[in-house]
Structure formats: structure tokens, C-alpha cells
């Protein structure tokens, strides 16, 4: 009986209990803002995204982006808006253009060069090397050197 009262109290009593409201009025727009803002750079900060920064300018820009989202502008339009004002610097994903070609293809060129160099070296090596690897004998010598330490003469 006591328990029943308790439950009744819990159910009816605390008028303050409730589900917290999302901070943003429109969670869907907020999700889109977040999606955009994590790839945008806060200009005044050292190195932070627009999403993470609490700088006043970052807040203003988020407000600006929110308004553009509300106006149903596309991601590209929003990004163009920012680039027109602050340049490519705001983009954490540098756009592919003449000056950034090396940046984008560089890693794969590096890999290609590395792979080619590896294959060529191994080919050449195969011709040059007479198989005198570290023999068991040498391994023993190394072990011996290590084991004898300072006593070696």
C-alpha cells in the first residue's frame, strides 16, 4: 500500500520532472549545421572547427549559417558564401585546384614512387646478391658477441 502511494506520488507529484528540450529549435537544421561546421575553420582561433569554437565570431558565423539553412540554401551555396568572404582558409578540406593538386595527389604519388623504387631495388638486388645472408654461423657470432660482453678480446 505504501508503495502504491509512493508510485502515485512519483507519477503525479513532481511537476518539474520532464524531458529536457533540445537547445536548438530545429534539431534537423542543427544537425546540418554541425555537419557543415566540422569541416569549417574558426578564423580567430588557433586551430579549431567552427563547430567546436566558442569564439564570438564563430558564434556569429554559426548564426549566419543557421539562417542560410533556414533559407534552404544548399551546402555548396553556404560554403561559397563563406569562401567569398574569408577565402579557402575557412575550409578544412582544401578544394582541389592548381595550387593544391600536389597536396591531394602527393600521398599517392609518394606511394607509387615508393612501390616502384621497392620493386626496382629488389629486382636489381636479386641480380647483385650472391646469397650470403646472415648465416647461422654469423648469428652464433652475434649471440656470442652479445653474451661475452666486455670479456671479448
Amino acid at each position: 500500500m505504501k508503495r502504491l502511494i509512493l508510485i502515485a506520488l512519483l507519477l503525479s507529484g513532481p511537476a518539474w520532472a520532464g524531458e529536457a528540450r533540445p537547445l536548438a529549435d530545429d534539431p534537423a537544421a542543427e544537425a546540418r549545421l554541425k555537419h557543415l561546421a566540422v569541416e569549417l575553420r574558426c578564423l580567430v582561433c588557433q586551430n579549431q572547427t567552427l563547430a567546436d569554437s566558442n569564439a564570438p565570431l564563430a558564434e556569429d558565423l554559426r548564426r549566419e549559417v543557421r539562417e542560410m539553412i533556414a533559407k534552404d540554401m544548399s551546402d555548396k551555396e553556404i560554403i561559397d558564401f563563406l569562401v567569398a568572404r574569408y577565402g579557402d582558409f575557412v575550409l578544412y578540406r582544401p578544394p582541389l585546384k592548381a595550387t593544391t593538386t600536389l597536396l591531394w595527389v602527393g600521398p599517392f604519388v609518394l606511394l607509387m614512387i615508393g612501390a616502384t623504387a621497392l620493386i626496382m631495388t629488389l629486382r636489381r638486388r636479386a641480380h647483385q646478391v650472391v646469397d650470403v645472408p646472415v648465416t647461422d654461423e654469423e648469428h652464433r657470432r652475434v649471440e656470442q658477441l652479445l653474451a661475452e660482453g666486455g670479456k671479448r678480446s
Partner: peptide, 13 residues
């Protein structure tokens, strides 16, 4: 007041 002109001019500091 709201920093909108600033944004249009690309002011960041």
C-alpha cells in the same frame, strides 16, 4: 551591432 557587416567584409579580428 550584430557583426553582419563584419562578416560581409570578411572581418575576423
Amino acid at each position: 551591432d550584430a557583426g553582419r557587416v563584419g562578416i560581409n567584409y570578411g572581418v575576423y579580428g
